[in-house]
Design a protein around this nucleic acid. Structure first.
Lengths: 250, 250
DNA sequence: CGTTTGTTTGATATTCTTCAAGGAATGTGG
DNA sequence: CCACATTCCTTGAAGAATATCAAACAAACG
């Protein structure tokens, strides 16, 4: 009896139905009945302490994971041993999409703070997607978005200088925090400067210098990992315009 | 009558069933009956002359396209007007996957030589994928691979120097030509040096210099767009190992 | 055959990394 | 609560890699 009550309480917290992120996540555009079916396959909600791995490079692929609270970093390890950060993942975002092809995770996922995720066993998700058109479509849409975002990031790496890259990343994080009901202009980064730089293909020292320059310009205020965007328009013009202009900025 | 005969002949050339690329493309692991259904939705097989666009950035998304013969380049245009190449696409490869999310093409696709493609109307493909488990799975796999490949490319852009990038690209092309039954060590590039460099985030002059260096090392032979790989192992060690070693090489 | 497009080479400039070292923040065990 | 260790961040100076500029050359095209 106690178990019953307990599990039902837990259950409620675990359902997509009751999840405030459902409009950012897989259930978008599903009706209640369909969301109920999706709830039926959500298996575990592991809680990860900072530094704990959700999966590691080379692990067998069994499930996709949706971030429920907290944040994750995904990264691969190069032959020379150092890591390359491939992404930061906020609540409502899915990780593991790159593992479907080979049934093996090509990167590791590690928690940046206390983080909980929903586990979506992939084979069951596939079956469900065949039965629920809206779910199949949303899954394809999320994967398509990931592709488009990664390619956008490629453009950033290929064509943007260091200042522009940081502006683009700050605005991306800002937008994503905003979508999640948090402040878009004042937020706490869960990742180290070094991780930000690594993700952007820049040395940590370079990151530090750009943060300083942005502050000297009065564009941001940064105290440790606490960041406030003071001149979003300046950052946008840096992010949106081609190079050759960061000199004026520096 | 004539039309009938003509179209049936054309039809035969158009089917996935009779296509030598079916094992690289969407039909992988489908049985004959399922491939027949897939054939049923393949609508047009446009032939594109060099320089002709399959679609342009901003166009409405209606279909995915599989390259049947020839090759494509996808690219986005930056605010400052110059282009960023996001990929080269050989026979058997799908383009348009990044358009599913917003129903708009986020990049343009242009033919690099006389190229023919199979058009896969997306809504019909979605319906079919819901009915044919193997098709849904293959579609998800192809998208997953695209994500993994793009992220791998991100790592290349973030961590590799110019020599390593070219080695990685040459080996990638080599492997893909090999998979298609062509020589893996001797092939004709359909794209200009400038496009290769653009894709790799390097100036055309830099590309030219690296090509020269690779030739001086005896690793490749390049006459115009005709390329022969003479020392695959040297290229592999450059591609596979971390930086700091291209100095010895250069 | 002239025009356009693409390729090569050299010289110079710029951006970013690397190296080195000090300082701040955070966490841990006494 | 403090001392110590560890990690993270910052700053300066020097060096390396690649971009840019300029110009000649080659190839492809109509």
């Amino acid at each position: 009896m106690f178990d019953r009550v307990d599990s039902s309480v837990t259950r409620q917290q675990q359902t997509c139905t009751g999840c405030s992120l459902s409009q950012l996540c897989l259930p978008v555009s599903l009706d209640d009945a369909d969301i109920g079916m999706l709830d039926g396959i959500v298996q575990h909600q592991p809680v990860l302490q900072r530094g704990a791995h959700l999966y590691q490079e080379g692990n067998a692929f069994r499930a996709l994971y949706a971030v429920r609270a907290g944040s994750l970093k995904t990264y691969t390890t190069t032959e020379s041993g150092d890591q390359q950060v491939t992404g930061f993942h906020l609540p409502g975002e899915l990780v593991g999409l790159n593992a479907i092809n080979r049934w093996t995770h090509p990167c590791s996922a590690v928690s940046l703070e206390t983080t909980s995720v929903c586990e979506l066993p992939f084979e069951q998700l596939e079956h469900l997607a065949a039965d629920i058109p809206g779910l199949q479509r949303q899954l394809l849409r999320l994967m398509s978005r990931e592709i488009a975002d990664d390619q956008d990031m490629l453009l950033t790496m290929a064509r943007r200088n260091a200042d522009e890259r940081l502006a683009i990343l700050l605005l991306s994080l800002s937008e994503r925090f905003g979508q999640r009901g948090l402040s878009a202009t004042r937020f706490r980064l869960s990742m180290a400067r070094g991780d930000l730089g690594n993700y952007l293909g820049l040395a940590p020292e370079t990151m530090s210098r750009i943060f300083r320059r942005f502050q000297d310009q009065g564009w941001i205020r940064a105290e440790g990992r606490e960041v406030e965007l003071l001149a979003v328009d300046a950052l946008e013009s840096l992010a949106g315009r081609s190079a050759s202009d960061s000199q004026k900025a520096g």
